[in-house]
């Protein structure tokens, strides 16, 4: 899980062009949106693309978005659960 969280942080920075942010600046439990990393609705779409491109995961239910993309940790947990279910 730690490796996945670390990879996700690097991928998020690259995908969202967060050039002044380093992986260590993003806390595992730090909210990604609004008061945390300050991501917006376009970033949310980019995170969906990130899941699809890097993990072959299609978020089928849009209502899952806020739960899945709450923090880097919740993203990692979702990916891990998905991969366990589909392996």
């Amino acid at each position: 899980m730690d490796k996945l969280i670390s990879d996700l942080k690097t991928q998020i920075i690259a995908q969202l062009n967060l050039q002044d942010t380093k992986p260590e600046d993003i806390g595992d439990d730090q909210p990604l949106f609004v008061e945390g990393l300050g991501l917006d609705s376009i970033d949310a779409l980019e995170l969906i693309v990130l899941l699809q491109q890097n993990y072959k995961i299609k978020l089928s239910n849009a209502e899952d978005g806020p739960k899945v993309f709450k923090t880097v940790k919740t993203m990692a947990e979702y990916i891990t659960a998905y991969q366990a279910q589909n392996s």
Binding site: L16, N17, I42, D43, L45, E46, V49, Q52, Q53
Partner: peptide, 10 residues
Amino acid sequence: KTMASPAQFV
């Protein structure tokens, strides 16, 4: 051609 980028689209 691969994955349409929402960030570019806007």
